[in-house]
Simulated assay, not measured.
Amino acid sequence: MPAKSSPYQPLLLRILHGLTGLSVVLAILTAYWTYDTYDGRWLSIGLPAFKEIEGIHGTFGLYALLIFPAFVIYALRRGQQRLLQPDSLGKLTQVGRPVWWYSLHRLANTVSILALTFALFSGKMMDETWLPRGELNHAWYYAHLISWVVMVFCIALHLLMSAKVGGSPLLLSMLSWRFRAKDNPSLWRSHISNWWSNIKPVSIQHWFSKVLSLSNGYRVLEAIVLGSIIAAWIIPLFK
């Protein structure tokens, strides 16, 4: 189902998506090199031993951890149409029809957010001294290995579904630098200022009520992701 015309992606989405994606891909590549250097019990390809690679992997993981919250907030606030919809699960029963592919694409996008959350959280739960000391049997190390395998699968599914529902125009639209007048970066400061001024105690209370009542899936997902990221920063302080 190739797109007949080139779709337009908001500039801020492209920037946040691009920075997050680049950080994640580099983290995955260095994660495997780290694994091959210190572990290599499964699927080792004999990369050169490079002791500093763990620190490089951690740096790219940190970049992703810093950028990801902004991307999640944007995706769940302005990009909800690209994520699972209330009727998406029902449409997944219509196998092979166009609506099935679009629903599968939204599912891949949503699962990718959760997978990256798990990868970043499990990485922060690890101790950087484990691998150099040969301590390979920690639960959080295994969880982190699994998280990156899942992340690779999610990225592959995300790209395949994007190509299926939008073809090359959709993929290339994420790399374009053109933007419309409303997306001009000179307007971002005022947009952020207006958004911040609208965050009031009553709004926060309303947000919590939606989370606790499970009445809005996007707010629940937002709470899970942002709560996990906050916990990833706080928990290591008490180790």
Score class of each variant (00 low, 15 high):
residue 201 P to I: 13
residue 46 G to H: 09
residue 48 P to W: 06
residue 72 V to L: 08
residue 19 L to C: 15
residue 45 I to D: 06
residue 141 Y to S: 13
residue 226 L to A: 02
residue 214 L to Y: 15
residue 87 D to Y: 08
residue 30 T to F: 05
residue 228 S to N: 10
residue 64 A to S: 14
residue 220 V to K: 09
residue 1 M to G: 15
residue 169 P to H: 09
residue 239 K to A: 03
residue 176 S to R: 11
residue 46 G to V: 08
residue 200 K to T: 14
residue 5 S to A: 12
residue 226 L to D: 11
residue 37 T to N: 12
residue 211 V to Q: 03
residue 214 L to V: 04
residue 9 Q to C: 11
residue 236 P to T: 11
residue 120 L to G: 08
residue 19 L to E: 09
residue 208 F to M: 09
residue 22 L to H: 01
residue 179 F to E: 00
residue 127 D to I: 11
residue 236 P to H: 15
residue 229 I to K: 07
residue 46 G to L: 04
residue 234 I to K: 03
residue 173 S to G: 03
residue 44 S to N: 10
residue 56 I to A: 12
residue 11 L to R: 04
residue 179 F to V: 00
residue 174 M to L: 15
residue 239 K to E: 15
residue 16 L to P: 00
residue 66 L to E: 01
residue 126 M to R: 10
residue 68 F to M: 05
residue 108 A to T: 08
residue 208 F to G: 00
residue 143 A to S: 15
residue 203 S to N: 09
residue 120 L to M: 04
residue 112 S to R: 12
residue 133 R to H: 09
residue 22 L to Y: 10
residue 116 L to G: 01
residue 216 N to L: 00
residue 18 G to K: 03
residue 47 L to M: 15
residue 237 L to W: 05
residue 222 E to H: 11
residue 109 N to V: 02
residue 171 L to D: 12
residue 37 T to Y: 07
residue 126 M to I: 09
residue 101 W to F: 13
residue 215 S to K: 13
residue 116 L to I: 09
residue 80 Q to S: 02
residue 55 G to Q: 07
residue 56 I to P: 00
residue 13 L to D: 03
residue 163 A to T: 04
residue 41 R to H: 13
residue 105 H to Y: 14
residue 125 M to T: 06
residue 118 F to R: 04
residue 98 P to C: 06
residue 126 M to N: 09
residue 118 F to N: 06
residue 146 I to M: 09
residue 172 L to V: 14
residue 234 I to R: 05
residue 138 H to W: 04
residue 5 S to Y: 04
residue 50 F to E: 12
residue 182 K to T: 09
residue 38 Y to I: 11
residue 73 I to M: 05
residue 166 G to W: 10
residue 60 F to Y: 14
residue 227 G to K: 06
residue 34 T to A: 11
residue 86 P to C: 14
residue 32 Y to Q: 02
residue 187 L to D: 02
residue 205 Q to E: 10
residue 140 W to C: 02
residue 92 L to M: 14
residue 30 T to G: 04
residue 177 W to R: 14
residue 130 W to V: 03
residue 138 H to A: 15
residue 22 L to Q: 13
residue 91 K to F: 14
residue 187 L to R: 13
residue 65 L to E: 12
residue 134 G to E: 00
residue 18 G to Y: 01
residue 13 L to G: 01
residue 2 P to Y: 05
residue 47 L to A: 07
residue 76 L to M: 02
residue 65 L to W: 01
residue 74 Y to Q: 13
residue 169 P to S: 12
residue 210 K to N: 03
residue 155 I to Q: 04
residue 18 G to T: 09
residue 77 R to P: 00
residue 159 L to S: 06
residue 81 Q to A: 11
residue 150 V to I: 11
residue 4 K to D: 08
residue 67 I to A: 01
residue 48 P to F: 02
residue 151 M to Q: 10
residue 220 V to G: 03
residue 237 L to I: 14
residue 100 W to K: 04
residue 156 A to C: 11
residue 229 I to D: 12
residue 113 I to N: 00
residue 53 I to M: 07
residue 14 R to Y: 15
residue 32 Y to M: 07
residue 107 L to Q: 11
